[in-house]
């Protein structure tokens, strides 16, 4: 064996012994490794698969029940929005999506695993970014199946219930926007929940804060009746604004356009992730 080859082998063996964080790597490589680590953790955590299945099943079941319960005998329909009605299940599905996101980081704080994670990957913000990519990707996939399933189920259920207007169809631009937008909505709820859970570090408290943020705003708008205040509240409430993406009827009466509404939720999600990222950098793990 030549001397150079021996030196090379020794060096390789030495690099293998070093902690992986000390080996210099390109930023793309390290991002890919962070993503791979988070993917493995979320994939192998107990319950992720069940929770993703629950997003699909609960969303489609509640949507079908809502579509099945509507009866309208008045001529010209009852002012129901078929796409929005068929996607009612998103109200419940978002709670499950929030659990997935909260557990992705809260579970690590609960067990102390987070210290191992940060020892292996000292760049904490890239850990959060990798978690955000994995969680939003998985929720987006489950949400797409859930909303497409909801609309397809309602297509079978709704005829005969007396709703006015053209039949619900994913071939129709507005209905497709409502369905795909609902999947994006669920993914953004996941990002919001991930940011909150990173800042709070306790799963139960984080899910309480997220669901409070989502559900208390619309309860408040139901009691506030004065015009200007009501409109502002509906524009900034994460759930009310975000679900504007489901509207296919009376769009001009909404306080925001559908995509602006989803944008308002995206701003909430970005704010929560920023808060979580800052907390990660400034605090001990």
């Amino acid at each position: 064996m030549s001397r150079t080859l021996l030196a090379l082998r020794l060096r390789r063996a030495w690099t293998r012994l070093l902690p992986s964080s000390l080996v210099p790597r390109s930023s793309v490589q390290s991002a890919a490794r962070a993503f791979g680590a988070e993917w493995t953790k979320l994939r192998t955590a107990g319950g992720t698969g069940w929770l993703l299945l629950a997003v699909v099943v609960l969303t489609a079941a509640v949507g079908s029940a809502a579509a099945g319960s509507v009866t309208c005998h008045a001529a010209g329909g009852c002012g129901q929005d078929p796409a929005k009605l068929s996607l009612t299940g998103v109200y419940l599905g978002q709670a499950v999506a929030a659990i997935i996101a909260v557990l992705a980081i809260g579970g690590e704080y609960g067990t102390g695993m987070i210290r191992v994670t940060f020892a292996a990957m000292p760049r904490r913000v890239s850990v959060l970014a990798a978690k955000a990519a994995v969680v939003s990707g998985l929720v987006l996939a489950a949400g797409t199946v859930a909303s497409a399933g909801s609309v397809l189920a309602a297509q079978l259920i709704l005829p005969g219930h007396g709703l006015a207007g053209p039949p619900l169809s994913l071939g129709n631009g507005a209905d497709l926007r409502a369905a795909l937008g609902s999947a994006l909505y669920l993914a953004l709820i996941g990002l919001l929940a991930l940011g909150v859970a990173t800042a709070v570090r306790n799963s139960a408290a984080a899910i309480g804060i997220v669901l409070g943020l989502l559900f208390l705003f619309p309860l408040l708008t139901a009691t506030v009746s004065t015009g200007a205040w009501l409109r502002h509240l509906e524009q900034i409430a994460p759930m009310t604004a975000g679900l504007d993406i489901q509207a296919t009827a009376n769009i001009r009466a909404l306080p925001l356009t559908p995509w602006q509404g989803l944008g308002a939720l995206a701003a909430w999600a970005a704010g929560a992730l920023l808060l979580g990222g800052l907390a990660l950098r400034l605090r001990d793990a």
Binding site: T71, I99, P218
Partner: peptide, 25 residues
Amino acid sequence: RGALTVTVVIAGIVLPYLLAITALP
């Protein structure tokens, strides 16, 4: 499980009321 429990409670008490006054027929 803490997070799961909180979600079930809120989905059982707050969410049905919210759905009843906003979204459901």
